[in-house]
Design a protein around this nucleic acid. Structure first.
Lengths: 345, 345
DNA sequence: CTTTGTGAAGCAAACGGTTCCATAAGGAGG
DNA sequence: CCTCCTTATGGAACCGTTTGCTTCACAAAG
């Protein structure tokens, strides 16, 4: 059925090896043969069999994305979409295919990774949002498979990773509120086992401190990257004796929850509570009022991750141990939700 | 390096074929050998090489998703994320991997599909949002590769597809507004080359007609699946001499645009204009006011597409020509944006 | 005791490429 | 005119599996 390299060879009156060489642009092939073979390939509609190619070359020209289980559970999925978009775009430019995989739990995830990497179905992996210690990372490292982490791990030092400077980002976000005149600023954090939560919290603390502002322990609440957390945090804050006039939320979804709550209670944003959050997902400018957010360059994050991974696949000698952490710049997008100071009490 | 079937065979003192048969659960292998081999596989950490397997079996256990170019351009991406989520979940349950691919234009797309299918990297494809006539569909059909279309094509009859009954959905949406007492109802459509636009428009027309309501030509405007279209449509409608009191929008993103516009002009929703749209993306309930929307079961759409595709890969004899169109049920989610009739003029 | 049937395992040929090594032709240098 | 490169190509082994056909041993049947 399918036309193979041998069929082409036969029709062209050359050997299979010659055809193969034409295909790969081997230098010692006469122009004449090359042309002839190419014409015949075109005529017969030849397409190389990737499986056969991979078998001998031990290379697949594809990478995989390992989604953490929360992705299955909807999570803040715009984030992932953007990331995937960046990855797929870059990979495709480098001639790589992208395979999406996920597992219901860490064990399943590990199985999937092992099957894909050891089974030589992909050449490398991109991991999203790692936990503190991670069997998957462990596995990949021990077998020295190429991989890059989107996010940061404080446990593993020398692994490739692409991330933002979340401490600095939170510092900037908080400083913005301070510069608008706010002094009582709350913080809604994410799950403490995620490093991103801790980094952002740290940045908030630093900003407060460096401006000589007190931060009350009750102004910091923990939650998830979900609306509910924002809703809950909001009602907690608003009942405080001297409640904050502004807050920094670890994720835009949290802000939406806060917004919904404030709306129900007829509070005004930013008059009664100013808000800044992170990620700048497309919704941020759609809410009313639009939310100020730190744009962390999600697409860029994915794009870079793919680039770094593919580079490391193609020349694995990059063990300088130097530039293995790539930091994507962030920027603050100021919108209505933080456009006013605490003023009118 | 990697441990192959031969290594296992040698260590177990059997032939490679025996190991292979143990792996595939061949009936004529003694329990004893089977156990022995399995232990050794475990010991040596054997993982089958998928490439070799695929080469001989001519099967890859993976499928691909072909994203239309607009996906690269952000589009209403929550839609795609949900769809992908459904596809990946189902595929993974069936033991299939999913490959994401896209091209900048139709030609590139075709190249990608050809490379993947003819190159035997995947066993089948899922196409999203097809244009009216499509070189990709043409190609897949001519080569009788398994594929399923998410959406509908009126040109190709016998292809597998998963879709909603968009005519009925629009009928329901419109009827809901009518039942709230609205009589002047506008419609914001999508690009006319997308079948989904036309179907929804048709449903709207039918509903109006079946209630004996007049539909003014100027109440129907064309746009894209984007906010801007909504914004523009809004300002057009609101300047009409006897403007509509309600409107149906072809996509939630359009509603957001409308909402933003109305907000700027200090109009109230639903008092001044009631709104219903389609897709029920997660944002719909986050806007203020929350938007009534037809939930078309995006996740389910993806899940089913994957299921249907894999089924057709595994037994391609399903040429009954009967059940090749799968319709996913929709349901109307009523929210604040359509909770009041035209009443107070 | 020889023939036939059956279950368990091995041999070797594929699958569609790549690549090392060998070879033939032709031209340059001695 | 013979030797030695160089260049363009062919031959064959190999990548890691699967699978049809054999083979072998042994028990049942004639």
């Amino acid at each position: 059925m399918t036309v193979t390299i041998k069929d082409v060879a036969k029709k062209a009156g050359v050997s299979p090896s010659t055809v193969s060489r034409v295909l790969s642009g081997h230098p010692r092939i006469s122009l004449e043969t090359s042309r002839k073979v190419k014409v015949i390939m075109e005529e017969m509609g030849y397409t190389p069999n990737m499986m056969a190619k991979s078998l001998v070359s031990k290379t697949t020209n594809s990478i995989c994305i390992i989604l953490p289980k929360p992705a299955e559970e909807l999570f803040s999925n715009l984030f992932f979409m953007e990331l995937i978009r960046g990855i797929v775009t870059q990979a495709s430019r480098s001639g790589y295919d992208v395979l999406i995989s996920s597992g219901a739990n860490e064990k399943e995830e590990l199985e999937a990774v092992s099957r894909l990497l050891k089974g030589r179905r992909v050449d490398g992996a991109i991991l999203l949002y790692s936990r503190k210690d991670d069997a998957v990372i462990e596995f990949l490292e021990n077998n020295s498979y190429p991989f890059v982490l989107v996010g940061r791990s404080d446990r593993y030092e020398n692994i490739l990773s692409v991330d933002n400077d979340n401490v600095m980002a939170a510092f900037d976000a908080t400083n913005h509120l301070i510069s608008m005149g706010h002094e009582r600023i709350g913080f809604v954090s994410g799950p403490p086992e995620l490093i991103v939560s801790r980094d952002r919290l740290e940045g908030y603390r630093k900003a407060m401190q460096s401006s000589g502002l007190q931060t009350q322990p009750e102004w910091i609440v923990e939650g998830e990257f979900l609306q509910e957390s924002g809703y809950r945090a909001m009602s907690f804050f608003m009942n405080l004796p001297n409640r904050p006039t502004a807050l920094v939320a670890v994720d835009d979804m949290v802000s939406f929850g806060v917004l919904r709550g404030l709306n129900e209670l007829k509070y005004k944003v930013p008059e009664d509570l100013a808000i800044v959050s992170f990620n700048n997902i497309p919704l941020s400018e759609l809410s009313s009022p639009p939310i100020s957010s730190i744009d962390i360059g999600i697409y860029h994050l994915g794009y870079t991750a793919s680039q770094v991974l593919i580079q490391s696949i193609q020349k694995p000698d990059n063990n300088t141990g130097y530039t293995n952490r790539f930091v994507i710049p962030h920027r603050l997008i100021i919108r209505e939700s933080s456009m006013r100071g605490p003023g009118k009490e």
